[in-house]
Amino acid sequence: MEELFRDYWWLLFPLSWMVYAGWTGFLHERRRAEAFKLIRTYREKGQEPPAELARMALGREC
């Protein structure tokens, strides 16, 4: 097991990156879904949703 780790320790970098990217992607999508829900609340009340909210829902916040 130790020998295996010594041969492939460098795999920790791409694997960590993939886990990190998956995690942030998941959070990003959840936030977008919540922004859509909030926009729906504004619409139901007949109000105009804020521009920042619309941008976030469209994934344009960065």
Binding site: T24, L27, H28, R31, A35, L38, T41, Y42, K45, Q47, P50, E52, L53, R55, M56, E61, C62
Partner: peptide, 22 residues
């Protein structure tokens, strides 16, 4: 704020402009 028909403060809106991985 939306339920009360009020405009949210600009500082609150600014919170939304940061990406999750900031």
């Amino acid at each position: 704020y939306a339920a009360q028909g009020k405009e949210p403060p600009p500082d609150l809106m600014r919170t939304l402009s940061y990406p999750v991985d900031d």
